[in-house]
Write a protein that binds this DNA or RNA. Structure first.
Length: 278
DNA sequence: CTTGTGTCCTGTAGGC
DNA sequence: TGCCTACAGGACACAA
């Protein structure tokens, strides 16, 4: 669920609530939610620290602390962060950081696939190796058609699979890859290396544009309502999705009579309009 | 190196 | 109603 736009939305909303706050107590309610170091070292290392800034890299949320430390969250499929009153009970809570002043940052993760890491900045452990190999942010200027063309050249895998590869375009997940390919008019199963130059140009632009739109509309809250802003509000990009979750429905492009199709690609649901996307 | 598949974990939706 | 299976926004290990 949380792809780049959702994590960025969470970052923007949490920042005013967290920056300047000091952590007075840590609780790990499920040990394996801590990816590094271990639950004990995590609690010990985090207590007494002050939050200085919130950052993001791909789908990772980075909570910077004093003493050069960083708390890094990955929400995977069902993770969620919220700031609650200290006495409030929270369902599926896996870790909690109590703050000065009676509030607490709650890490909620029903499926328990998400992780939180406590690291020294620039000393990332093996558990975070994926973060170091991560490609450029698609919404940053160094992600452009020339870069993308170079990364797709000669590749025989479906173009969607490569969009999901965080080493190529970080922050992209199942929803925004489908949406970007729709906007670019490219079928998800096309072999990446077979794309024409004009396709790649459109794809690079579409990817940045769809992620920026996702941020503008505060992310995508699907039917299960699992993704929420930290205050519990829903995002609204789901109202603007062109293909994702719209199997059997009419294509959104004006005058197009196509019906959105859904197909499996490497175990992931993949949506496209057979008329608009070739 | 590239690619496709299985696995982690839990809740929920849908079929029978 | 109850049971069983398939599936879910991600990432990584591993086999071919």
């Amino acid at each position: 669920m949380p792809e780049l736009p959702e994590v960025e939305t969470i970052r923007l909303r949490l920042r005013p609530l967290l920056v300047g706050q000091r952590i007075v107590r840590a609780q790990v309610l499920r040990k394996d939610i801590v990816g590094f170091p271990d639950a004990r070292g995590f609690g010990r290392g985090v207590v007494g620290r002050t939050i200085t800034e919130l950052g993001r890299r791909g789908k990772y949320l980075i909570v910077r602390l004093d003493q050069g430390k960083e708390l890094i969250f990955h929400l995977r499929l069902s993770g969620h962060l919220e700031v609650v009153d200290r006495d409030r009970k929270v369902e599926y809570e896996r870790a909690r950081l109590e703050l000065v002043g009676g509030k607490a940052l709650s890490f909620v993760e029903p499926r328990a696939l998400g992780r939180v890491y406590l690291v020294q900045a620039n000393e990332y452990p093996q558990a975070l190796a994926g973060m170091l190999k991560m490609g450029p942010e698609p919404i940053h200027e160094d992600f452009d058609a020339a870069y993308l063309r170079d990364r797709l050249r000669g590749r025989t895998a479906p173009v969607k699979s490569l969009l999901l590869d965080q080493r190529i375009a970080c922050g992209v997940g199942n929803i925004y890859s489908d949406e970007a390919l729709f906007r670019a008019g490219i079928r998800p199963l096309r072999r990446a290396g077979n794309l024409r130059n004009a396709d790649v140009v459109r794809l690079a632009r579409a990817l940045a544009a769809v992620l920026e739109d996702g941020i503008r509309w505060c992310g995508t809250t699907m039917g299960d309502g699992r993704y929420r802003l930290p205050d519990g509000q829903a995002g609204s990009f789901q109202k603007r999705l062109a293909v994702f979750g719209r199997e059997g429905k009419r294509c959104r492009r004006r005058g197009c009579a196509g019906e959105v199709r859904r197909q499996k690609l490497g175990g992931r649901s993949t949506h496209f309009c057979p008329v608009c996307q070739r």
